[in-house]
Simulated scan of single mutants.
Amino acid sequence: MFADQAPCITPVHRAEIAAQDLAIALARYNIPADVHVLWPDQAQVSVYFGLLVHTSGYRYWWIVAPSSAERRKPLWTYADDTATAARRLAEHYRELRTRPVEELLLYGQLLADVILENVDVAPV
């Protein structure tokens, strides 16, 4: 590569960089998060039971398990920037930590679910 050329950022790099940025921003809220790149143009950030964030590098989106008190359906939500995503995820994280894990496992999206939905598995 020549000194006057900018490095090429591929979709996989863009998604992974955005996911890493989100994990760093969540750490500022004392929220641990794991980054996973499962597809060439998408990365996932596992935040908590039932709280899995997807990113293409341009936007973040996630599903929040339904709350019997507030809503009966899962909440699909998104953010266009890292700071907004981290702030909103911190709010969801605090709320989810007050709920029984069994409820979150029943209604939330897990990393394992996403992997199994998108991987060809031969029957045994």
Rank of each mutant, 00 (worst) to 15 (best):
69 A>C: 03
72 R>K: 13
88 R>G: 00
26 L>D: 11
118 N>W: 00
21 D>F: 01
114 V>P: 00
16 E>V: 01
21 D>E: 14
8 C>K: 12
111 L>V: 09
63 I>Y: 12
69 A>Y: 11
98 T>G: 05
47 V>Y: 03
73 K>M: 07
13 H>F: 03
80 D>H: 07
45 V>T: 07
46 S>L: 04
4 D>Y: 12
32 P>H: 08
57 G>P: 10
120 D>V: 11
44 Q>T: 03
122 A>Y: 14
14 R>H: 14
17 I>Y: 10
37 V>A: 08
30 N>Y: 05
66 P>Q: 02
12 V>K: 03
29 Y>G: 01
73 K>Y: 10
66 P>E: 05
85 A>S: 06
13 H>Y: 04
54 H>V: 00
87 R>L: 12
100 P>H: 06
116 L>Q: 11
8 C>Q: 10
83 A>H: 09
41 D>C: 02
113 D>W: 04
3 A>C: 04
120 D>A: 09
62 W>I: 06
42 Q>V: 07
108 G>C: 09
81 D>H: 13
39 W>R: 09
124 V>F: 12
63 I>E: 13
17 I>L: 11
94 R>V: 05
54 H>M: 10
121 V>D: 02
23 A>H: 03
70 E>V: 10
78 Y>W: 13
14 R>P: 01
112 A>Y: 01
5 Q>V: 03
118 N>C: 02
68 S>G: 05
2 F>C: 02
117 E>S: 10
114 V>L: 07
32 P>R: 03
43 A>Q: 03
32 P>I: 00
121 V>C: 10
6 A>E: 14
59 R>T: 11
26 L>I: 08
99 R>P: 07
56 S>C: 06
71 R>I: 09
65 A>E: 10
61 W>H: 14
100 P>D: 06
22 L>Q: 00
86 A>K: 02
56 S>A: 04
29 Y>H: 15
40 P>M: 02
45 V>P: 05
66 P>C: 02
37 V>I: 04
30 N>H: 13
28 R>C: 09
40 P>N: 11
38 L>R: 09
88 R>D: 15
90 A>G: 08
108 G>S: 08
27 A>D: 14
60 Y>V: 02
20 Q>E: 11
91 E>M: 14
36 H>N: 13
110 L>N: 12
84 T>S: 14
102 E>M: 05
60 Y>I: 02
28 R>Q: 15
86 A>Y: 02
30 N>L: 05
69 A>Q: 14
116 L>G: 00
8 C>N: 07
95 E>N: 09
85 A>W: 02
59 R>E: 15
7 P>M: 03
117 E>R: 13
84 T>P: 01
100 P>C: 05
65 A>V: 05
21 D>A: 08
53 V>M: 01
86 A>Q: 07
17 I>P: 00
97 R>Q: 15
18 A>L: 05
52 L>V: 06
32 P>W: 01
102 E>A: 15
7 P>R: 08
53 V>E: 01
110 L>K: 10
68 S>C: 04
72 R>G: 08
65 A>F: 08
26 L>H: 10
73 K>L: 12
14 R>D: 09
10 T>N: 06
107 Y>N: 11
104 L>I: 07
62 W>K: 11
64 V>Q: 09
54 H>I: 01
12 V>T: 05
7 P>E: 10
63 I>L: 11
82 T>V: 15
40 P>G: 08
117 E>N: 11
85 A>F: 04
80 D>G: 09
